[in-house]
Amino acid sequence: MSDAPTTPRSFQEIILRLQSYWAAQGCAVLQPYDMEVGAGTFHPATTLRSLGAKPWAAAYVQPSRRPTDGRYGENPNRLQHYYQYQVIIKPSPANLQELYLGSLAAIGIDLGVHDIRFVEDDWESPTLGAWGLGWEVWCDGMEVSQFTYFQQVGGHDCKPVSGELTYGLERLAMYVMGVDHVMDMPFNDPDSPIPLTYGDIFRQTEEEYSRHNFDGATTEMLFQHFKDAEAECERLLAFDPQDPKSGKRIIMAHPAYDQTIKASHLFNLLDARGVISVTERQAYIGRVRALAKKCADAFRLTEAGADQ
């Protein structure tokens, strides 16, 4: 590549560069979804918007939680709370791979020196009833992104197909900046008046949430909340679309989907607490998937999810 990209100096600089890059490619730069999710894919801007025929292009950072991955802030690259950068474009453009490679260059990866590879990796989310084909992208043998062409979401065929890119931000940033432990990574510019590392911001919370996830959370309450979310989701979808108050046709697909997200996170917490047996596990995943499917069905009946 001709113009040598500079190496970013901080975690936030990488995020900012990705934001400007994808904004320049015409994506709507959205904000994180305001709920606890396991991955950027759960944001309704990806799950629901990948359904139906309406063109869509969005990019966003999504804080993600995987309660079982908590390591009390000690593991160099495992966190129960981390960031994903997510890009979703429908229909997938013919040059999506080129666009993606451009984003790597933008964050300081010199494509003339590094070995970038697209290695087969088919994506499937049993909780979302979704799957797609694509690759994990390797940079010098390290997985830096997932690249997926969505084929089905919530049991519905994706027509047209969305292209989805997911960057694991911490891992990518650590690699780009040559940092060995995530907690040592500069979050803001190291020359700032008040330089902050990732550890300054998250070490304590990793400890607190690790204890919470493994030992603290009240399981009876979580089980009850799971049931409540499940019931609420189904209840919201059972409403007559015709709203008597506004006189409009309003299907509550998004509010119902919020309950699906909740149920999914509650299941992850219960899993971390070790109170779900191997056989029950499948049943819980099936229950979340059933909700996701119902939300997808409902969204397809709305304007944003329609075929035209």
Binding site: P91, S92, A94, L133, Y149, C158, K159, V161
Partner: peptide
């Protein structure tokens, strides 16, 4: 063994 659609097309191939 596994094929896919992409973009707005209906053709199936292993990758676009």
């Amino acid at each position: 063994p596994k094929s896919m659609r992409w973009g707005s097309g209906s053709l199936r191939w292993v990758r676009p």
